[in-house]
């Protein structure tokens, strides 16, 4: 469960103050499928970053699974990110020197999970996403679609309650894009909340709830 109240985010660009988010109220229940849409600069990525605790709001409160995150310190926020949130990025953000397997393993390594358990979980996850045979390939030896699958595998290995995807198909051709969306929707069917930023209207149409952002505010919300 996500609840944002009166969230503000102001960036200082030179002399000017840019209001990326103006008093945004937003909430989502567990298992929802939400698309955030809007023109570039409308604040949709900023909203996603704040939901993902990658960015701190300048005002307002944010509650995630009844944890008041806005008062947490760095270590506690990191803990929340680690266990509750999975990220999928437009540019995949795989570590280029690590193999697919090692990239997926990374969250477990950071969390200090034991080696045997790590291997078991990684193998299981890679298999589930159909990239078991690519385990020992490095990102530059994988296709775009495969890279995003690895990234999704990495996002889900800690069994998060929310997956945040920022333009997950933006860097893929249509076929692999569809592929990736199907995988994300399948995860959503397993009761994981899916919040996706996109400006592809076709992709937005698939979501059960659509939010349209303009100029740092929510202009239209089909669901709540």
């Amino acid at each position: 469960m996500i609840r944002l109240q009166q969230i503000q985010r102001v960036f200082q660009v030179g002399e000017e103050e840019v209001h990326a988010l103006r008093n945004v109220d937003f909430s989502a229940d567990k298992g929802e499928y939400i698309a955030i849409m809007g023109p570039s600069g409308s604040g949709k990525s900023t909203l996603l970053n704040i939901i993902g605790l990658l960015d701190r709001p300048d005002g307002g409160t944010y509650e995630l699974d009844s944890i008041m995150t806005t008062t947490l310190n760095d270590r506690e926020q990191a803990h929340v990110r680690r266990h509750k949130i999975g990220f999928v990025f437009q540019f995949f953000h795989l570590v280029p020197r690590l193999t697919a397997e090692q990239n997926v393993e990374l969250p477990l390594v950071l969390a200090g999970v034991d080696k045997d358990e790590r291997h078991l979980r990684v193998r299981e996850t890679l298999g589930a996403f159909g990239i078991g045979d690519r385990a020992r390939h490095r990102p530059d030896q994988l296709s775009g679609g495969q890279r995003q699958r690895v990234a999704i595998a990495r996002a889900t290995i800690m069994k998060p309650s929310v997956i945040l995807a920022d333009e997950p198909t933006g860097n893929l051709d249509r076929a692999s894009g569809n592929d990736v969306v199907h995988i994300l929707e399948e995860l959503n069917r397993q009761a994981i909340t899916l919040i996706m930023v996109t400006h592809d209207p076709e992709l937005g149409e698939r979501a059960k709830r659509r939010i349209k952002m303009v100029d740092g505010g929510i202009e239209e919300d089909t669901g709540s």
């Binding site: 993902g52 990191a78 803990h79 990110r81 990220f87």
Partner: peptide, 12 residues
């Protein structure tokens, strides 16, 4: 940035 997103705090 990725390491942070994956849950690594500053000291780590």
């Amino acid at each position: 940035g990725l390491l942070k997103a994956l849950g690594a705090p500053r000291h780590q």
